[in-house]
Amino acid sequence: MMGAGIFAGDILVVDRSIRPVFGDIVVAEYDGGFTVKRLLRPDSQDCKAILHPENPDYDDIHVSENAELTIFGVVSAVVKRIDRSWPRTGEKASRRRIS
């Protein structure tokens, strides 16, 4: 999500009370996991939304009409850590990488 200013190790403030609209950056429950993406309007009939990674290295996810997609919440703020200890090294660090 570099294009939206969100980098590995950043802390996201997620607001469940905001009703998501296309264009919002959201935390979505998709394919059994959480993902942060920009929610975009579908571009075809059999698609209900696009999850856009804001990163040229990754492709858009076209969520098909019958796939399960739940918006966990809308990202309302990003907190940046600027000390060296964050993100943690090793396994944790790689888990925290946000695409």
């Binding site: 802390i11 935390v27 943690r88 888990r95």
Partner: peptide, 8 residues
């Protein structure tokens, strides 16, 4: 803090 959910 160290346990907050991780998103990708």
């Amino acid at each position: 803090w160290s346990d907050i959910p991780v998103v990708r």
